[in-house]
């Protein structure tokens, strides 16, 4: 069974799978998709984005209406091809797990 992915990475990828977003929007998506279970605090949020970018799973997208002052602009991120396949692999792994757990449960209930 492939190695599991950090939960926050999974949720970030999940958020970006729906389209490019900036950091704050990602944090909001993650909060929702984890039913409030994961709150990404600033350093964790941007640290994770950097890690995912290092892995090549997400990339920064040039923003059309960026302001001239580079440090003040919002960075938009999008998922890459390899990011999407990592997301799919993790989804598959989780689905397999769920199936396994249900099978065991059913056997016990008989």
């Amino acid at each position: 069974m492939p190695q599991s992915m950090k939960a926050r990475w999974y949720h970030i990828l999940l958020s970006l799978a729906g389209g490019a977003r900036h950091g704050l929007a990602i944090a909001r998506d993650v909060r929702e998709s984890s039913h409030g279970g994961i709150r990404l605090w600033p350093a964790t949020l941007y640290g994770s984005l950097e890690e995912l970018a290092d892995l090549g799973w997400i990339e920064e997208i040039d923003d059309e209406n960026r302001r001239p002052d580079a440090s003040e602009r919002k960075r938009y991120y999008g998922i890459t091809r390899s990011g999407r396949s990592a997301l799919d692999a993790e989804t598959q792994r989780l689905a397999d797990l769920v199936r396994l757990a249900r099978a065991i449960n059913r056997r016990q209930n008989v």
């Binding site: 950091g23 944090a27 941007y46 950097e50």
Partner: peptide, 9 residues
């Protein structure tokens, strides 16, 4: 890289 956005968040 992220000071401004971190403050915002």
């Amino acid at each position: 890289r992220h000071a401004a956005e971190m403050e915002e968040a």
